[in-house]
């Protein structure tokens, strides 16, 4: 199978997965106990049965299931996510208002987690068996097992409540709502201060995986003959490690990086809740508390979409970076 066929297969798989997600989403809310009209009728204070029937028709609830299913799928694919029960505004607007916050959090965290994890992992592999190696492995196991929300709470207590170095909630200082700053550096600094603790939490949650993976692949690579050659040539140790060894050990790291980016969404739900960071994750949490089903449904769809995309990219990168791989 050539690269093109492989590509087509992966894309087809991704599309099928998107449809499965949509179907799951549809079925979950279809199976939900209780008639949605009953809930709506009581909250909207509908007076008569005729009114109930009119509303039922308006929402298309009188249609058979397959018609609603097709309508639902077209709506979701065209970005018509409906309206939030709680705020009564369009879900798509809510997503737009929060997407940037979450992407910034997840993006910075992923990059930092990879950078720290990879560098620490390379050093651990090089100093295999030493104190640095065993402590870093132990530390990453520990931060991996500690619940991320617990780590967040510890950071919040120490650095926000007790020391007051970092704010404990929000994305920008509260006073900016009245007097927005003009200087770009002030804006960036303010945002970074608010991002710091959530990012640290997510990095602590994720870097361990990278450290262990890098260490494992590097240990394998460092025994290869060309590494001995490179060292014999008299190359600097840093060049040997990062240019020669890491390059060849990076394949599993890249797939893992893409998957991690998707995984970060789950971490963001929790982290944003701890730090009251108004992103998509915090919104999802609010939606759970308000039983705001349209938001829940859409958030699950969007997060799944991101994860599916990340996986697809990982698959493609895999093929591009290492041409030796046989697809199939």
């Amino acid at each position: 199978m050539g690269f093109k066929a492989y590509l087509a297969k992966r894309v087809a798989f991704a599309i099928v997965t998107v449809f499965i997600v949509l179907t799951v989403n549809f079925v979950i809310f279809e199976l939900m106990p209780g008639d949605p009209m009953e809930v709506f009728a009581s909250s909207a204070r509908l007076q008569s049965l005729e009114q109930v029937e009119i509303v039922r028709e308006m929402f298309g609830l009188d249609q058979p299931m397959h018609v609603r299913y097709i309508r639902y799928i077209t709506n979701m694919l065209t970005g018509q996510f409906g309206f939030s029960y709680h705020s009564r505004t369009a879900v798509s607007e809510g997503i737009m208002a929060r997407l940037l916050n979450t992407l910034m959090l997840i993006g910075i965290s992923t990059v930092l987690a990879i950078a720290i994890g990879v560098v620490a992992g390379v050093i651990a592999a090089q100093k295999r068996g030493g104190i640095y190696d065993s402590t870093s492995v132990l530390a990453s196991l520990l931060t991996y097992s500690l619940p991320s929300f617990w780590i967040g709470m510890v950071l919040l207590l120490i650095f926000s409540h007790n020391l007051g170095w970092f704010p404990g909630s929000g994305v920008v200082p509260v006073e900016w709502a009245i007097t927005p700053p003009e200087n770009l550096f002030v804006v960036i600094a303010g945002r970074l201060r608010h991002l710091f603790l959530p990012v640290v939490t997510l990095v602590l949650f994720q870097y361990g995986g990278f450290l262990l993976l890098t260490r494992a692949t590097m240990l394998e690579t460092l025994t290869e003959d060309y590494i001995i050659t490179a060292r014999a040539k008299g190359l600097k140790e840093r060049t040997v490690l990062f240019k020669h060894a890491l390059k060849n050990a990076s394949l599993p790291l890249i797939t893992n990086a893409a998957i991690t980016f998707g995984f970060m969404f789950s971490g963001a739900i929790i982290t944003e809740q701890v730090f009251t960071y108004p992103g998509l994750g915090y919104w999802l949490w609010q939606a759970i508390n308000f039983n705001d089903y349209p938001v829940l449904q859409t958030m699950f769809f969007i997060i799944s979409l991101c994860v599916i995309a990340a996986n697809l990219i990982a698959d493609l990168l895999y093929g591009i970076i290492d041409p030796r791989i046989k697809y199939g």
Binding site: T17, I269, Y293, F300, S304, V307, I308
Partner: peptide, 19 residues
């Protein structure tokens, strides 16, 4: 199995249990 592996577990659990 592959499809289920791709689905983000925590959000799916959240939605299912909320419902």
């Amino acid at each position: 199995t592959d499809i289920l592996l791709v689905l983000p577990t925590l959000p799916l659990l959240l939605v299912l249990i909320a419902v």
